[in-house]
Simulated scan of single mutants.
Amino acid sequence: MTASCGPGSDTGRRAAVLGSPIAHSLSPVLHRAAYAELGLTGWSYDRFEVDEAALPAFLAGLDAFWAGLSLTMPLKRAVIPLLDGVSDTAASVEAVNTVVFTGDGRRLGDNTDIPGMIAALRERGVATVESAAILGAGATASSALAALSRLCTGPVTAYVRSATRAEEMRGWGERLGVDVRTADWADAAEALRAPLVVATTPEGTTDALAAAVPEAPGTLFDVLYEPWPTRLAAAWAARGGAVVGGLDLLVHQAVLQVEQMTGRTPAPLAAMRRAGEGALAARHASA
């Protein structure tokens, strides 16, 4: 999906990230860095605190100078009924994180988290794996399953805290064509022996697993980027394992958003990553 250039596409367009809470978002840093590198001096990218109730009115108030939106929680599913079309990728997990406004006024939804995960893993040399483990069962876990449907040739074991979550993950597996097996969170240390482990849980949830990292671990994909490294990621790296972090995911999915919203390819991955790293370093220094 590529945005059609609309009014002022060369001299000025608008884009933004929406969500609640949104103050922590690094998306403006990444997108603005891309605009600067691409010479899009008239483009702007902002952040807006918008919840599900406020989303319809916000969309209705946008004019033709808007190129697109990035969406974070809790809007990824709420936006779908408000769109004119949704990509197969987004439909597969019922989650939209990217809206592009076309020249003829349509709102098209996509999910760049899934190809962003794949790109982040491939950048670190992970093209295929025979099996994998997922820690957690939330919205990010379903996107991880969708990514693994294109990378994993064998079973994926999801470590969850409840029978309801286990049933949900097996349901996503059936829908996405992934052989999903479930295990209790109490046994999550066993997940660390998988060739690829994807941690999708909130801050602090996997800290207790750091002591259980095995000798010669495989690849860990921890979707958090702040604070970084997580205790699990630090222990993993200390054992010599490959680590893919949340900033890798954030940058790769943002690259795809920039390309869709601006029509310019390729987006400047290196410049966007440097900007993200710099912003995180500045936050850490001021903390």
Rank of each mutant, 00 (worst) to 15 (best):
R283Y: 05
I22Y: 02
A267F: 03
L38H: 06
G177I: 05
T153Q: 15
F65P: 00
L176R: 06
S4W: 09
T164P: 00
G12Q: 13
T164Q: 15
A141N: 02
G241W: 11
M73A: 14
T182H: 08
A95Y: 02
A163G: 14
L82N: 08
A216E: 14
M73C: 11
T164C: 06
I114F: 01
K76D: 04
G276D: 01
S149R: 10
E123M: 11
V223I: 15
A163V: 14
E174K: 14
C5G: 10
P115G: 08
R124L: 13
A141W: 04
T200K: 05
A34K: 02
V197A: 06
L82R: 09
A281D: 12
A33S: 10
A208C: 08
E130Y: 09
R14L: 13
E277P: 06
M261G: 01
V100E: 03
R47Y: 11
W43A: 00
P115N: 11
E130I: 11
A90M: 02
R106K: 15
T98R: 00
R231T: 05
E49N: 14
W228I: 00
A211F: 00
I114D: 01
L82I: 07
R170D: 04
G8C: 10
R170M: 12
Q253N: 06
S149F: 06
L196E: 05
A67M: 07
G39K: 06
P155S: 15
T2Q: 08
A119V: 08
W43Q: 04
M261F: 13
A139H: 07
S27N: 07
A279M: 04
D184E: 15
M169S: 04
T112Y: 03
A216M: 04
D110V: 03
R124F: 12
A64S: 15
Q257V: 01
T41N: 15
I118K: 09
Y35V: 05
S92V: 03
G171W: 09
